[in-house]
Amino acid sequence: MTESPGGVPTSRPYYSGPPSQPGRTQPATLADILERVLDKGIIIAGDIRVNLLDIELLTIKLRLLVVSVDKAEEMGIDWWRHDPMLTVRERGLDEENRQLRERLAELEGGGSEDGSSDGQPAKESGRAGGRSR
């Protein structure tokens, strides 16, 4: 029914476990549990005051904690508030731009300079992209 872009390999695993089968019980990832237990559920103030702002900050911190700095920058600090679709697209283009700028600088500088113009040191191949491997 949809036009698939074609040419994208499909059979690689996404989770380390076997391919998921709805209806079978699967171990929930910590991400699945955290996003529900911390972000969802009924809020009733108990006698012990847990500032809701604290919890919100906590989830933000948690997300940042587990995200490397360049990844967080790549996503934008408040990426989870954005339309996921939009974020994905923007992220791709930003990354693309960055790579182009780096490559350009490299070519213009005769390959001697490996840095990018915006003061962000280019990571040695591996981690910089996340997308390109």
Partner: peptide
């Protein structure tokens, strides 16, 4: 309900999550 896409470090997924 649509939830924010998850961070791969927590969820262990590969690729880009376009729907959660």
């Amino acid at each position: 309900r649509q939830l924010p896409p998850q961070d791969p470090r927590l969820s262990g997924h590969e690729g880009t999550m376009v729907l959660n």
